[in-house]
Simulated scan of single mutants.
Amino acid sequence: MTELTGHILTPEGWLEGRLAVGGDGRIAALEGRAVDEARVRASEAPVILPGFIDLHVHGGGGRDTMEGGDAVATLARLHARHGTTSLLATTMTAPPADIRHSFEGLAPLCRQRPAAGARVLGVHLEGPFISPGKLGAQPDQACPASLDLVRELHAIAPIRLLTLAPELPGHLALIPELVGLGLRVQIGHSLASYEEGLAALQAGAAGFTHLFNAMTPLHHREPGLVGTALAHAQHAEIIPDLVHVHPGAIRAALRAIPGLYCVSDATAAAGMPDGEYRLGSHRVTKCMGGVRLADGTLAGSTLTLDQALRNLVGLGLSLAEASARVSRHAADYLGLSDRGRLAVGAWADGVQLEPGALTLQGVIVEGERIC
């Protein structure tokens, strides 16, 4: 039976003790005495947190979700080595045939976790139902939402999240039908007004895709989609690489949105040296810690969630709060009660960190030690 010892973050608080993993890959026992976070950070004992959950990841290790084939297995292994124990493979805007090709390639990995890799929980369909006026780094191949296409893709591999622009003709009326299929609908890549965003939430949309990026900004007389999120959202994703969003804006979102959770929006360039990589049909360049199109537009990131955790702690969050933003809130958003927390009966997804610099020392995914 695998065991981890150290300072363990549980839903009830910190324990100094041991976590035992059963043969089924779930947590069989948690034992120890309660301690506070000050003792945790002052100690030399390892810190053990829930594994990270990334609901928006395009690539890593030189591979891109849209490639199909074994690309998703490669990115799942790369991000697992950085503490991500489950993720959503995220697609790009493209012709339906290309999206279908991607789904066919990743479908087997949704059924069988890749060896030494993160669990692929399903797909985040980020395009193509977005605004041509807010593409960001998405290819210029947006199209109106199609329930038939969603059903076809969902039958190949499970869609867990779907991003759309609610202001486009027919999209608002489609939201309840998409929710009825069991999907979480997110608002993003959109020119919607505050009022149109609020109408989408009332229709059943549940979140916002990379908050602040590729959406109408906040102005005190025209609040835009950012205003909708800050005033009304229970959940939203944000990219805390300190490039996509200013630290002050991150702090504002943390105060306003209870279930704000972090995503990497990582591209194939994550974990790779500077150079040129694929992002859907685009070629992007990694240099100086960022990823951009030829015109300078930010094009995803090289972020991994272990660095996201360190960035949040650097912004002043407690380690427990930062952990929730890279694990539990994302799990709760998807309705997963057995991930994103270290509790008896939950999946044994965990990361072991050095308590000072919070450098990664070990990762287990469903009881398997990855590193």
Rank of each mutant, 00 (worst) to 15 (best):
E177H: 13
E177T: 12
L178V: 06
L178P: 11
V179T: 12
L183S: 07
Q186V: 13
G188P: 05
H189G: 02
H189C: 08
S190M: 02
L191R: 12
A192M: 11
S193N: 08
Y194W: 13
E195N: 10
A199T: 06
A200V: 03
Q202H: 15
Q202G: 04
G204H: 00
G204L: 05
A205C: 11
A205S: 12
A206C: 12
A206N: 01
G207A: 15
F208Q: 02
F208D: 01
T209A: 10
T209V: 15
H210E: 05
L211D: 01
L211P: 02
N213Q: 08
A214P: 12
M215P: 09
T216K: 14
H219P: 00
H220K: 11
H220N: 12
H220Y: 09
P223Y: 04
G224M: 04
V226Q: 07
V226R: 01
L230Q: 07
L230D: 00
L230V: 10
Q234C: 12
H235R: 10
A236W: 08
I238H: 00
I239S: 04
H246P: 03
G248A: 15
I250H: 07
R251I: 09
R251K: 15
A253C: 06
A253W: 02
A256S: 15
I257E: 05
L260D: 02
L260Q: 00
C262Y: 01
C262R: 07
V263R: 00
V263W: 03
D265C: 03
D265P: 04
A266H: 10
G271R: 05
G271N: 10
G271H: 10
P273E: 13
D274A: 15
G275R: 09
G275E: 11
Y277A: 13
L279A: 06
G280M: 10
S281F: 01
S281Y: 00
T285G: 03
K286R: 15
C287T: 14
C287Q: 14
M288Q: 15
M288R: 14
